[in-house]
């Protein structure tokens, strides 16, 4: 819409834009620029050496491995939970629905403590996953739970149930209808939720810091490696792994955005 006269921004538009650019630069861009500069302080080879140092590489490998596992777990369980919340009906459904957001509201360190109290050293149920990769998976599954549920739920709500009924009337069984009709509609939402969960998982720190155990080459994730590198005063190593993490997150989100754009275009063509 063309900016109309007389409704000029308080203080004027250009002042506003200047303010915004300055603010975002100081808070977001300059720190990230300084980080990137530091990671290349020893040139490209310095960066490469820092990232491929055995402990660094192991931490990155553990991070990605566990994050992929958690993302896949989310894809399945998140879709299932969303389906139950939309299509099923049972007493207490509303409470469950609100509960889904709890991991977003709960501080990550609290998530860590909460899981430790049940699955930690003095577990009352006899499950000890403290300082194992399973501990990482549980912690990350906890904090990323809402992503897939919350992206699938609205799509499922809007999905045209008549299409499913048509499939059933044509003789398709329940599972067949789900696989051939429902799943394709939900796929974009599942993929985007899974991608967001993955991006969150690779950078997660607070929820794994207590339950993960921080054992190098075993359960130490990238964020813990970075924290330790700062502690023992190896800023270049910390910066290089940080930039790697950033790059993975950006690529993930970028791919998601492109995929979403393509999917939307295809649906519009159908119309």
């Amino acid at each position: 819409m063309p900016p109309a006269r007389g409704t000029r921004a308080p203080g004027g538009r250009s002042l506003q834009v200047g303010l915004v650019v300055t603010w975002l630069s100081v808070i977001v861009l300059l720190p990230l620029a300084a980080l990137t500069a530091k990671s290349f302080a020893g040139g490209v080879s310095g960066f490469w050496d820092a990232v491929t140092a055995p402990t660094a590489l192991a931490a990155l490998r553990v991070t990605i491995l566990v994050s992929v596992a958690v993302a896949l777990l989310n894809a399945v369980m998140g879709t299932l939970i969303a389906w139950v919340l939309v299509r099923d009906d049972f007493p207490g459904k509303k409470v469950v629905n609100v509960l889904i957001d709890l991991p977003f509201a709960l501080p990550t360190i609290v998530a860590s403590i909460v899981l430790l109290s049940l699955y930690g050293p003095d577990s009352p149920v006899g499950i000890h996953i403290n300082a194992t990769r399973w501990g990482l998976v549980v912690a990350l599954a906890f904090v990323t739970l809402p992503f897939v549920v919350r992206s699938v739920q609205p799509v499922l709500l809007e999905a045209d149930r008549e299409v499913e009924q048509a499939a059933a009337s044509l003789g398709a069984s329940g599972p067949t209808t789900f696989r051939r009709i429902v799943l394709p509609t939900l796929a974009p939402a599942i993929i985007s939720g899974t991608g967001l969960a993955f991006a969150r998982a690779i950078g997660e720190y607070g929820s794994v810091v207590l339950i993960g155990g921080n054992i190098p080459r075993e359960t130490q994730v990238a964020s813990q490696y970075i924290q330790q590198a700062i502690e023992i005063d190896q800023p270049v190593n910390a910066a290089a792994v940080s930039v790697t993490l950033l790059a993975i997150a950006f690529v993930t989100l970028f791919v998601l955005r492109v995929a979403a754009g393509r999917g939307r275009r295809r649906e519009e063509e159908v119309r």
Binding site: P31, L32, A34, L35, A199, I202, G203, E204, Y205, G206, A222, S223, Q224, I226, Q227, I230, P235, A238, A239, S242, L245, L246, A249, F250, L253
Partner: peptide, 10 residues
């Protein structure tokens, strides 16, 4: 998209 730890390092 930025890990909290990375924020701190930056």
């Amino acid at each position: 998209a930025v890990s909290p730890v990375v924020v701190g390092v930056s």
